[in-house]
Measured scan of single mutants.
Amino acid sequence: KRLCLVCGDIASGYHYGVASCEACKAFFKRTIQGNIEYSCPATNECEITKRRRKSCQACRFMKCLKVGMLKEGVRLD
């Protein structure tokens, strides 16, 4: 089984260019469509796991980008 490159949960397929789970796919889409900017309360190096993926949105979004999710893949309509 493929794992989500962002949080390590089971991937539902390839989304925005990267093997990812439904939760991270939806999080990435919401962030881009809403043009949301997050800031990390710590040092921008929070560990993102299935259990902790909700704890820091800034680091989760940075990890989405780091593993290769493409903003261009999100439709803005």
Rank of each mutant, 00 (worst) to 15 (best):
H15R: 06
R52A: 11
K66I: 03
G8C: 05
S12M: 09
Q57N: 07
E37N: 03
Y38I: 05
A19L: 11
Y14D: 14
C7M: 01
C7G: 00
F28D: 00
V18I: 12
V67H: 06
K50N: 13
I36L: 08
K66C: 05
N44Q: 12
R30M: 05
K1R: 06
K54P: 15
A26E: 14
D77F: 05
F27Q: 00
D9G: 08
T31H: 02
M69L: 04
C4P: 00
Y38H: 08
S20R: 05
F61C: 00
E45V: 09
Q33G: 08
G13E: 02
F61G: 03
H15L: 07
Y38E: 03
S55V: 15
A23F: 03
C64V: 01
D77K: 10
G8V: 00
K66P: 00
K63Q: 07
C46V: 03
V6H: 00
C46D: 01
F61T: 01
C56H: 03
R75D: 13
R2N: 13
V6C: 02
G13D: 11
N44W: 06
L3T: 11
V74L: 12
A26T: 06
R30G: 12
C46F: 01
Q33P: 03
C56M: 00
R2H: 13
G17P: 05
G17D: 10
F27D: 02
S20V: 15
R30K: 14
I48P: 07
R2Y: 12
S20Y: 09
S55C: 15
S55E: 15
T43V: 12
Y16W: 10
K29V: 13
I32K: 06
C46Q: 01
E47A: 10
E22S: 08
I10S: 11
C24A: 00
F28T: 02
C4I: 00
I48Q: 15
C21M: 00
R2T: 07
L70G: 10
A26I: 06
C64W: 03
R2V: 07
T49W: 08
L76K: 11
G34K: 15
C4L: 01
G68F: 12
S39D: 15
A42T: 12
T31F: 00
E47Q: 10
L3I: 15
E47M: 03
E45Y: 04
T31W: 00
E22Q: 10
C56E: 03
L5H: 05
V67N: 03
F61H: 12
G34I: 06
V6S: 02
I32Q: 05
I48L: 07
K66W: 03
I36P: 08
S20I: 15
A11W: 12
E47T: 09
A19Q: 09
T49S: 08
E47F: 05
I48T: 08
I36K: 09
A58N: 13
Y38G: 05
Y14R: 04
S20G: 15
T31N: 03
H15G: 10
C64N: 04
L65I: 06
T43I: 10
K54L: 12
R60I: 07
T43A: 13
A19F: 06
A58C: 05
S55Q: 15
G73C: 09
K29Y: 02
T49D: 14
M69R: 02
V74D: 13
K54W: 11
A26S: 06
R53I: 14
L5M: 09
K71H: 09
C24L: 01
K71S: 11
R52I: 08
E45I: 06
R53G: 13
C59V: 03
V6L: 01
D9P: 00
K66V: 07
G73E: 14
V67C: 11
Y14N: 11
S20P: 06
I36F: 10
H15S: 08
C64Q: 00
L65R: 04
C46L: 01
V74H: 07
K66G: 07
A26Q: 13
V74C: 04
G68Y: 07
I10L: 09
P41G: 14
K71A: 09
T43Y: 07
M69W: 07
C64D: 00
N35M: 06
G17M: 06
D77Y: 06
L65A: 07
E72K: 09
T43N: 10
I36N: 08
P41D: 15
M69A: 02
M62A: 12
R60Y: 15
C24K: 00
A19K: 09
C46G: 02
S55N: 15
L70W: 11
S39W: 15
A11M: 10
L76N: 13
M69P: 01
S12H: 13
N44P: 02
R52W: 11
C56F: 00
A11V: 06
C40T: 01
S12F: 10
C56S: 01
S20N: 14
E72W: 04
T49N: 12
N44M: 12
I36V: 12
K29S: 13
R60H: 15
C40F: 01
C64F: 02
C64P: 02
C7E: 01
L76C: 10
Y14S: 09
I36G: 06
G34T: 10
G68H: 02
G34V: 08
T49M: 12
I32P: 03
I10W: 13
G73V: 09
G13S: 03
E37V: 04
R51C: 01
T31L: 01
L70K: 14
V18L: 03
M69N: 02
D77L: 08
L5E: 07
C56W: 02
V18Q: 05
E22C: 12
S20D: 07
Q33V: 08
G13C: 00
A42D: 13
L70E: 14
I10K: 13
Q57A: 12
K63C: 07
K66H: 08
K29I: 04
A26C: 11
A19N: 12
K66M: 13
Y16C: 07
R75P: 13
S39E: 15
E45C: 05
C24R: 02
K71G: 08
F28C: 01
G73L: 12
I48K: 04
Y14F: 13
A58R: 10
K54T: 11
E22P: 08
C64R: 01
E22A: 12
G13F: 06
R60Q: 14
D9I: 05
A42Q: 08
E45F: 06
L76A: 14
K63L: 03
M62E: 13
G17V: 05
F28Y: 01
E22N: 15
E72D: 12
C24H: 00
C7T: 03
D9M: 07
T49Q: 06
F61D: 00
I10C: 11
G68R: 00
Y16D: 12
G13W: 02
L76G: 13
L65F: 04
K25S: 15
L76D: 13
E47V: 09
Q33W: 05
N44H: 06
A11G: 12
E72C: 07
G68W: 01
D77W: 06
A42V: 08
Y16L: 06
Y16G: 10
V67G: 05
K1A: 06
L3W: 04
K54S: 14
C24P: 00
R51V: 12
T43H: 04
G8N: 01
K71F: 06
V67P: 00
S12D: 12
Y16M: 07
V67R: 05
K71Y: 07
Q33R: 06
V67K: 09
A11K: 05
P41R: 08
A26M: 09
L70T: 12
S39Q: 15
R51P: 08
Y38K: 02
C40Y: 07
L5G: 06
R2F: 14
A58M: 07
C24M: 01
S55I: 15
I32H: 01
F28Q: 01
C59E: 02
L3N: 15
E45N: 07
P41V: 14
A11I: 05
R52H: 03
Y38S: 04
K25A: 15
R52T: 13
R52E: 14
K66E: 10
V18E: 05
C59W: 02
A19H: 08
R2I: 15
I36W: 07
S55M: 15
G68D: 06
C59H: 03
L3R: 08
C4S: 01
K66N: 10
I32R: 05
S12L: 08
Y38P: 03
F27Y: 04
C7Q: 00
A11R: 04
Y16N: 10
G73P: 12
M62C: 00
